[in-house]
């Protein structure tokens, strides 16, 4: 059951919708591992990737997902668009809308920008990250990775560590893991912790070892360069000392704990390079693989709803 017109965030999804995406994604994981990775479920549809903020990984993942499903994929980067000429977001959206895309994948540096854009277009909009707000496909791919490794997506202890305050990945994950009834812990210095964190249904820790004690999953977040150097933390080395994950600190977690990272990693800042490469605990490469599958599933479901909406007697999607 996935009765949504857009995928703007985890907010608004329920357990059934999340499971629908993940179940369908499983079939695409299998497909992506075959030599022949092609389907025609998006054949005839146009997918536009609109990235107002630089991204290699997410954009590539969405592009590949669309192409494997047979969509016509177009990439629009901000550098080559008229946004630089002073056109407003809404005008850009209206212009694109007039070209009748079916799926619009949007990343924007301002929180809420994707919601605003979705109000003005007729196609399905997928949020590929808006400011510090949400990054729903990242949370879904993390969920799929966890479910495959742990055999379930409930009643787990998940520790999220690092720059929670500026992270849309953290927000979407907190929402998703909360909906799926997991125990969530946030770990980081107060300068990187969002206000009101204690009211998000999570436990807050300022000590990495205590925070990951008994955790099934340890999720490390990227620390942006501009947040270092005395602004929010004193130095990189002090940060690594207190909040960087290495094998020794990880010993506090459960023996079978997995380590995740949304990438790109800063080796030696938030995570030890050797640990990140340890295939026994690190699932970072698997996350990337799941990313393509989850995006295929999300676009497939949204396209079904689009078709349902446009065909007489089709199920109305909201």
């Amino acid at each position: 059951m996935f009765a949504h017109r857009h995928l703007l965030g985890i907010q608004g999804l329920d357990r059934a919708a999340i499971e629908t995406v993940l179940d369908l994604a499983e079939t695409y994981v299998a497909m992506n591992r075959r030599a022949e990775k092609h389907s025609r479920v998006l054949a005839g549809l146009t997918q536009i990737n609109m990235f107002f903020e630089a991204s290699t990984r997410t954009q590539a993942s969405f592009e590949l997902a669309g192409k494997r499903l047979g969509a016509n994929v177009m990439n629009m980067s901000v550098a080559s668009s008229s946004v630089k000429k002073g056109e407003t977001l809404i005008d850009t959206a209206m212009t694109l809308n007039a070209m009748h895309p079916d799926l619009l994948v949007v990343r924007h540096p301002a929180s809420g920008a994707v919601n605003l854009l979705a109000e003005k277009v007729n196609c399905a909009v997928l949020n590929a990250g808006d400011g510090r707000h949400e990054h729903p496909t990242q949370a879904l791919l993390d969920a799929l990775t966890i479910r495959r490794r742990k055999g379930r997506l409930s009643r787990l202890t998940v520790a999220i560590c690092g720059d929670i305050a500026h992270s849309r990945v953290a927000r979407s994950n907190i929402l998703l893991l909360g909906i799926m009834e997991n125990r969530i812990r946030l770990i980081g210095p107060p300068t990187l912790m969002p206000a009101g964190a204690e009211r998000m249904g999570v436990e807050v820790f300022q000590d990495l070892r205590r925070g990951i004690e008994g955790a099934d999953v340890v999720m490390m977040l990227r620390l942006q360069k501009e947040r270092m150097d005395g602004a929010l933390i004193p130095t990189m080395r002090e940060y690594y000392h207190r909040f960087g994950l290495d094998a020794e600190k990880l010993a506090a977690a459960r023996e079978d704990a997995i380590v995740m990272h949304p990438g790109p990693m800063n080796r030696g800042v938030e995570i030890d390079g050797l640990l990140a490469d340890d295939i026994n605990v690190s699932v970072i490469q698997e996350q990337v693989e799941m990313g393509v599958a989850v995006r295929m599933a999300a676009m497939d479901l949204l396209a079904r709803n689009l078709r349902g909406r446009n065909e007489p007697g089709g199920a109305a999607a909201c």
């Binding site: 809420g112 400011g131 510090r132 305050a165 849309r168 927000r171 206000a195 009101g196 009211r199």
Partner: peptide, 15 residues
């Protein structure tokens, strides 16, 4: 204004 709501919307806040 700083608080849970600004945090969830991901907007820059002031106490």
């Amino acid at each position: 204004t700083t608080g849970l709501y600004a945090s969830m919307l991901g907007l820059p806040d002031v106490p």
